[in-house]
Design a binder for these strands. Structure first.
Length: 554
RNA sequence: GCGCCCGUAGCCCAGGGGAUAGGGCGUCAGCCUCCGGAGCUGGAGAUCGCAGGUUCGAAUCCUGCCGGGCGCACCA
């Protein structure tokens, strides 16, 4: 509808110019928007105001000039008028709306899909928690946002791969091994003081017991570094399996799990460093090797190989990101915790150093989740090992509610997650508010079938009955879906879909409360069924972009 | 100290330059003889942190300040 009006405005301006009523054929970018207030029409354009300087005319005058050209051949409008400082307001004929429902019915699950990606291969990497401990609520938010984003982008025509990067190499894994080994030693009565830098969580002891169960005391015979590395391997596998299980319970399916260790095994990390030395991007100073990230806007250069010979995580991250593009992705999106934001410039620098453009890399930062219960904070500290595991949250509130709540805020805004609230089946909890619409409509459809009502395809005569303000408002809201999805995809902001669904649900509930779908008038009943079934489809469509189900019954 | 994010009603948040700033919670007053009340309608409640600037027009863009969070390792 917006596109149609935009074309009409451009056409009108051209015609006016040819008749000598406008001074210039040049047109600025014409924008059509939906005004907030009913008395300002269904749509408006700022054309006259933005053209004022080009035309050297007063905005109001321009508006009045083009209006006759707009109304001349368009039977779309009841009226078009100039208003305010120079807006042109369009009042669309109510009968212009129902045809839009046909589109919803025909496209179904594809309704509203913006044609943005054109099959472009992109990757969304998210969660990628180190296999040193179970996933906690914060990871859950990253998972919900990352997955929804992947769904939205895929819906928008991109060829999306979901990837999990496994940090299965380096110091943290070694620390994990040490932690487990010490607990293991304790099981055999060897008293070792547990270091502060080791992982404190109870799951470490569980893993030590598993090792004990599967291979007895033989690790005690090993040299310590070998025992530690055995423990590390064993523990990382158990933890990673646990992570996979959590993600699966959360409804997540990854396309690829990428191991950091394989980068080392294939010599990719060394390769990047050697190549850097040849091109001068990597240099030696104070016995360490540094990457010249300052050349690409970072505030200082970063170490890739420490003076003790250890490579840093940054080194493998350079290799990893290069690898992503080599695998054919033209665009890469990383979803990180907001506390990693300081890492962005150096990764960006590394990517630009390999000849990729700025627009090929995005980082989505996920802000903190504050876990509450009845408004009181639930203590969480990863260091002390007292975090709330994602699985506990899912068990308590369900993965649907958890997902939806994670998506009720902009991802860079901190989120209060109240466990008590998330379980409530009231208006406080927007998941049910939206799902309820779907179930309610499903129920209406069941009733209609019991009464033997045969639904009909779209026809102008039947749909002519859809004239109530609540009906028009419902259709208008559905017409906004496409733009909402497009914006969500372009800005990588899944929460826009969440808010949209709440708005649509609200429009439906208001309608439902005032009008009966299955009413005395058989023709009107058919039209309303058609309308309400369209709403059901859009709700389903939107919820599926968030990874949330749409129940037929609740 | 430097960098990034946030500051919108009593509370939690939406608002990618447009007219009279929206929704939820809470609060007050109402709505089921009727398709699912997990619902609906209406009140009250806002100096959009402060001060400048750009613009015909700023919650939105720019600069400075104030307040909060997070980062600033040869850690990740």
């Amino acid at each position: 509808m917006k596109e149609t009006i935009k074309r009409l405005v451009i056409k009108a301006a051209h015609a006016a110019y040819e008749n000598g009523e406008l001074n210039s054929p040049d047109l600025p970018e014409v924008e059509i928007e939906a005004p907030k207030f009913g008395n300002q029409g269904d749509f408006s354009t700022n054309f006259a105001m933005v053209s004022a300087s080009i035309q050297k005319m007063a905005p109001k005058k321009i508006a009045e000039t083009i209006i006759p050209y707009l109304t001349k051949n368009a039977d779309l409008f009841d009226k078009v008028e100039a208003a305010g400082p120079g807006f042109v307001n369009f009042f669309v004929k109510p009968s212009a709306w129902p045809p839009m429902l046909k589109d919803v019915h025909e496209k179904g699950d594809r309704f509203g899909a913006p044609d943005l990606g054109k099959g472009e291969k992109i990757q969304v990497e998210f969660v990628s928690a180190n296999p040193t401990g179970p996933l906690h609520v914060g990871h859950g938010r990253g998972a919900a946002v990352g997955d929804a984003l992947a769904r939205i982008l895929s819906f928008s025509g991109y060829d999306v791969q979901r990837e999990y990067y496994i940090n299965d190499s380096g110091r943290q894994i070694n620390t994990l091994g040490r932690s487990v080994f010490i607990r293991y030693e304790e099981l055999y009565g060897i008293d070792v003081t547990f270091p502060d830098d080791c992982y404190q969580g109870g799951y470490i002891l569980d893993i030590a017991r598993e090792i004990q169960a599967s291979r007895g005391n033989d690790l005690l015979e090993f040299e310590e570094h070998r025992a530690v590395s055995e423990c590390a391997r064993f523990a990382a596998k158990i933890i990673l399996d646990d992570i996979r299980l959590d993600l699966k319970t959360f409804g997540l399916v990854y396309d690829n799990w990428y191991s950091e260790q394989t980068l080392y095994d294939a010599g990719k990390v060394d390769g990047v460093i050697t190549e850097g030395r040849e091109t001068g991007l990597v240099y030696e100073k104070d016995g360490a090797l540094w990457f010249k990230t300052t050349r690409f806007g970072d505030e200082k250069d970063r170490v890739v190989v420490r003076s003790n010979g250890d490579t840093t995580y940054f080194a493998s991250d350079i290799a990893y990101h290069r690898e992503k593009y080599d695998r054919g992705f033209s665009r890469v999106i990383d979803v990180w915790g907001a506390d990693h934001h300081g890492y962005i410039p150096r990764i960006r620098a590394a990517i630009e150093a390999s000849g990729r453009g700025k627009e090929q890399f995005d980082v989505i930062l996920i802000q903190l989740v504050n876990l509450l219960r009845d408004g009181e904070p639930v203590a969480m500290s990863t260091r002390a090992g007292e975090f709330v595991a994602l699985k506990d949250v899912i068990n308590e509130v369900g993965s649907e509610a958890a997902r939806f709540i994670f998506l009720t805020r902009h991802h860079e805004s901190p989120l209060d997650f109240d466990l008590a609230l998330a379980k409530k089946k009231t208006n406080d909890n927007p998941v049910y508010y939206v799902q309820y619409v779907h179930a309610r409509i499903a129920s209406i459809i069941r009733n209609s079938m019991e009464r033997g009502i045969e639904t009909v395809p779209y026809s102008e005569e039947t749909m002519a009955g859809l004239v109530a303000p609540e009906e028009i408002s419902l259709i208008k809201t559905m017409a906004e879906y496409r733009e909402t999805v497009r914006t969500a995809a372009e800005l990588m902001e899944p929460h826009r879909i969440t808010y949209y669904l709440i708005t649509l649900a609200s429009a439906f509930h208001a309608y439902y409360n005032k009008h009966r779908v299955l009413c005395e008038d058989p023709v009107l009943t058919l039209a309303r069924l058609y309308l309400v079934m369209a709403v059901k489809k859009v709700i389903h469509n939107g919820l599926s972009l968030l990874g949330v189900s749409s129940p037929e019954k609740m």
